[in-house]
Design a protein around this nucleic acid. Structure first.
Lengths: 222, 222
DNA sequence: TAATGTGAAACCGTTCACAGCT
DNA sequence: AGCTGTGAACGGTTTCACATTA
């Protein structure tokens, strides 16, 4: 039985190497984002209080997160932005080029293909798949749309690391199985269904309706 | 300073009425989803073990979540699906009609307007706003796109509860402030930036790049 | 008999507070 | 003087295990 918070699961309980609290991973991602902004502004250092303020997190949490990275800030000064960015990037897996495919070029898939913001983090969309003949052969955001019927073969050629799943619910499980069979390591799932997959595939779920529901809940219980 | 997990914050620490562990809210949303599916399949009851399996959560967690709802399952039998669905719906705020506006009709905004799956949960998209003259006046997914320049006035007419923010990063803070000024209670924010807002507005962030980064992390530390 | 509901223990993650660097 | 790094206290969730009830 799996005890991880819903919306963030790995099919195999990790023998992982990290001493990192899981919520910290999400925060690192946010620090990373802000650090880039700060670098663009020409800043060279930042302290836990200021960084925390940018991300709406307490300074203590920032320090804990960064120190558990083995990162070295300088007492009395703060953290050097360049080093810190590099460290966090390494932990999060930027620096590696991740090969990513997208399956399902509906309106959401379309939006994801156009979304600039993956590349900067080391994600390279190498192909998209759909069944619609009107879409096959076209390009969106520089990515070619291939015939989903030929997906297995193409995946064997490309051997991508990750997949973004943006197909209708009723096809999601099926397509996900194909992806796993083709050796995908991780799936970003936008279909509102819990994928139950064999083996070791990591899954992160993004359920747009659920997010809106969480928002409504927090408003209702304000 | 704000201590909530990133990506899920309320601008004012709630004097909320709920005895519900926060992580439970997300799970309730998932149970809700599965319960609808089960109802469609004609099932009448389900037990904690089976429901947990559908959502990848332990039976003990399911029971805790449901009992903290005050819900009554029957020992030896399980939970009646209809009653349970109703209860969870009430807690999550389905049953109320939430009036929602969307700001920013780029490709993501477009996809969100076409997304069927909000209505069923009680969310009604009542208007969209954009600055692009080519879009203004058109309809997408049955929702009219209005001139963003007139937003404040329109919001005063419509007085929506929630807003979906799908504008470019550099406009996000600005637009969010306008929304808050217009009395919006909650914002679902797709812009990759931490909104720092005055007052009591609830914010839920969805950062697509971050999600992909979390996926990469869990793959890398498999 | 089967499955809920729930004390009590175990387990994280966060917060506090301060010693230790620079 | 200022800010990091971290032991120790704290608080909230999850897990365990079982008494309870249909």
């Amino acid at each position: 039985m799996d005890q991880r918070p819903a919306n963030e699961s790995t099919a195999e309980t990790s023998g992982g190497s990290s001493k990192l609290p899981r919520p910290a991973v999400g925060r690192l991602s946010l620090y990373f984002r802000e650090l880039h902004r700060l670098a663009d502004l020409g800043e060279s250092h930042i302290n836990s209080k200021a960084l925390g303020a940018l991300v709406d997190v307490s300074p203590a949490v920032v320090r804990r997160d960064l120190s558990s990275l083995g990162t070295i800030g300088r007492r009395g000064v703060g953290y050097p932005i360049d080093k810190l960015t590099e460290q966090i990037g390494a932990v999060l897996g930027s620096g590696v080029q991740w090969q990513v495919v997208l399956v399902g070029v509906g309106s959401l898939g379309d939006a994801l293909l156009r979304y600039r913001g993956f590349e900067r983090l080391g994600f390279r969309l190498v192909a998209a798949f759909d069944l619609d003949p009107n879409k096959i052969g076209k390009q969106i955001g520089g990515v070619s749309i291939l015939n989903a019927a030929t997906m297995t073969g193409k995946l064997a050629e490309l051997s991508p690391d990750l997949a973004i799943l943006a197909v209708p619910v009723d096809q999601a499980t099926m397509v996900a199985s194909d992806l796993v069979a083709a050796g995908i390591s991780g799936i970003l799932n936008f279909a509102p269904i819990t994928l139950r997959l064999p083996g070791k595939t990591a899954v992160v779920n993004v359920d747009l309706a659920s997010e809106l529901q969480r928002l409504a809940f927090s408003v209702q219980n304000r």
